[in-house]
């Protein structure tokens, strides 16, 4: 009860501060729309898809997963600014739940990601994507898990390194292989065998496969439950670890 209340309190505050920055809305929507408009036309021939709808069914879930990963991974910068301002220390002298300090923030990130995802889905629908609403909601759940995980990781790492200068290269180093090996932009079915072998070890490639199956309307596909479970497990670990970092002494 106290925990839920605390989480809601932190979430409200963070959400309010976010919507006060209209720049965020602009950047958050502009980027994916560019991908959709400028990149997608190349897809149909490249993927040898039979229709625009099919091309979008492959591309859009990948794009959404990409946004979830990146949107989350770079949240740590905001936290470093809060650390510097003394806001985190001020929170830590109160009896507020440490898990709530993390979750309130991460849930804000999840909500803003889902808002982005809805806008992109609507646009893609206008361009000819078709998807079942039930499958779509399940895909959003998957995205929410990813965003929760990556933002929690980012917050945890921010608390450990405590400086933007260290966080930026670290996040890029994590993001790059994750991106290249997850088959996000193009499916790995084109990749040589050894590359696919490595990709199997990339948890996000499971997530992408799951999301693609959902957008394809293939709810019974093993990739769906596998993707969801892999993400759920890693998210739990990431959240537990990051909440501990909030509880530990930081300066």
């Amino acid at each position: 009860m106290k925990f839920a209340r605390d989480t809601w309190l932190i979430f409200q505050r963070q959400f309010l501060l976010l919507v006060r920055q209209p720049v965020w809305l602009f950047v958050g929507i502009f980027q994916p729309v560019m991908y959709l408009l400028l990149f997608a036309p190349l897809l149909k021939p490249a993927l040898q898809a039979s229709s625009n709808a099919e091309a979008y069914r492959i591309f859009v879930p990948g794009l959404l997963v990409l946004l979830a990963i990146f949107g989350g991974l770079f949240q740590g910068f905001g936290l470093i600014a809060e650390l510097r301002a003394g806001v985190i220390e001020r929170s830590r002298v109160t009896p507020v739940s440490r898990l709530a300090l993390l979750l309130g923030r991460s849930l804000r990130d999840v909500v803003s990601l889902i808002a982005q995802a809805i806008i992109i889905t609507l646009l893609a629908l206008a361009f000819g994507l078709t998807v079942f609403i039930g499958d779509l909601l399940l895909a959003y759940l998957l995205l929410a898990l990813i965003a929760l995980m990556t933002s929690a990781l980012s917050y945890g790492i921010a608390l450990v390194v405590k400086s933007e200068d260290a966080l930026a290269p670290l996040m890029n180093t994590i993001a790059q292989p994750v991106l290249l090996l997850s088959g996000i932009l193009l499916p790995l079915s084109f990749a040589p065998g050894w590359l696919q072998g490595i990709a199997d070890w990339n948890p996000f490639s499971w997530a992408v496969d799951g999301a693609r199956a959902l957008f394809a309307g293939d709810l019974g596909n093993d990739a769906v439950w596998q993707g969801l479970s892999v993400m759920a497990v890693i998210t739990t670990l990431a959240v537990t670890w990051a909440a501990r970092e909030f509880a530990r002494s930081v300066r």
Partner: peptide, 14 residues
Amino acid sequence: IGYVAQGGSTWDES
């Protein structure tokens, strides 16, 4: 207890 840090504790945007 209450604690007021040496370096301040307010957030610019609130």
